[in-house]
Nucleic acid binder design. Structure first.
Lengths: 211, 211
DNA sequence: GTCTATATGTGGATAGAC
DNA sequence: GTCTATCCACATATAGAC
């Protein structure tokens, strides 16, 4: 009654069935929200019975985990930015940040799953987290080719850029009120970086503010 | 069997029943996540029957709405920062940002509801949104007392600060790897602001970058 | 207002036949 | 692998007694 018994739903896009499941899961998440994803809906859209999903995914959380890995892999494949030691830092940061912005705005739900802890019990598995780590290293590589960025520099970069993206998505989904300031922010971070380099190591990094 | 028929659960904290409901809802949200909140659980913990909740709240979304207003009101009441025209901008920004950080880290779930769009269908009502607006104006007032901050300045401030907070909560809940850079970030924003003021209006704000 | 009782629709998940 | 059947929990809502 529902679906052809020897259905070819696995040819939906890729070779493996799991990939088709994950693709459809993204589609539904975009429609109903990440938390609004339903395994019943998912199975129905794939033309299969709900329990059949459990042959491929152990639980709903496991599905989120597969989506997590898939999303970070998509970032790795998205407009790769080659490391070029001849570029200046500002250019490298701006190119990287704009790539990150385009990727995030293209799929807010994906951005939510990859960057925030929004699903109550969900924590990525070591395997999936490794993909996220690989994406992070790929993002970092072109920067390290032109500057001695510390971990703190990277954290300030990722935190502030993601903050602008998040505010943009939450408050003005279609616009550029926040992400339009990315270039200014990158110039600020470059200034911060170069200012620190110009000031030779002063033991404790005092700021001389206490009046 | 469940609860005393003439229960005094409304004396749980405040005078009104709705306030007690909202308080308990926060408690449960902290335990099971924001999306994991259940009206059954909520009623059970309050010692009342589930349908009785509907005397106070029209739906689950209406409960989220009440929590949204309650959360922003809590921010308004949290360590209010008086406007003082004699302070310098850097100090004002740092005090305000640290206040914002303390408030957010104290309750990650609250931070999630107030700042991100994480509940699929939820949108704050006009009344609740007005409370959020009041909180925003309160946050902005001490800054305007000492500087001519534009909307773009405010957006850059709120976006980047919230970004550091969000990354902190998502990746290292107990630590300060990201929020520890708040002071540096505030100094950067002050530099940005003063640099622009020092550079007289040059019609179109060109950056002279195109080589 | 609050309760019990009840109903429907949805959701994750499992057992067991084929 | 895939199905039917089933279970339990939850959201939502209504009826009617107290």
């Amino acid at each position: 009654m529902l679906g052809n018994q020897n259905a070819d739903w696995r040819s939906a896009r890729k070779a493996t069935a799991l990939a088709a499941i994950v693709d459809m899961a993204w589609e539904l998440a975009r429609e109903h929200g990440l938390a609004g994803l339903s395994l019943r809906d998912l199975a129905r859209r794939l033309g299969m019975a709900t329990p059949s999903l459990y042959s491929y995914v152990d639980s709903k959380h496991a599905l989120y985990d597969a989506m997590f890995a898939d999303g970070w892999q998509a970032f790795i494949d998205f407009e790769p930015q080659p490391a070029d030691p001849t570029l200046d830092l500002a250019t490298v940061l701006k190119v990287g940040a704009h790539r990150w912005v385009r990727f995030s705005l293209a799929d807010p739900v994906r951005h939510q799953l990859l960057n925030h802890r929004t699903i109550p019990g969900f924590e990525p598995s070591p395997d999936s987290y490794a993909v996220a780590q690989a994406a992070y290293l790929q993002l970092r590589a072109p920067i390290e080719a032109v500057a001695d960025f510390t971990q703190a520099d990277m954290d300030l970069l990722t935190g502030t850029v993601d903050g602008l993206i998040t505010q943009q998505l939450a408050n003005e989904p279609g616009g550029k009120r926040w992400v339009g300031q990315i270039d200014d922010l990158m110039d600020l971070l470059v200034h911060h970086y170069e200012h620190r380099r110009a000031t030779p190591s002063r033991a404790t990094p005092r700021k001389g503010k206490k009046r």
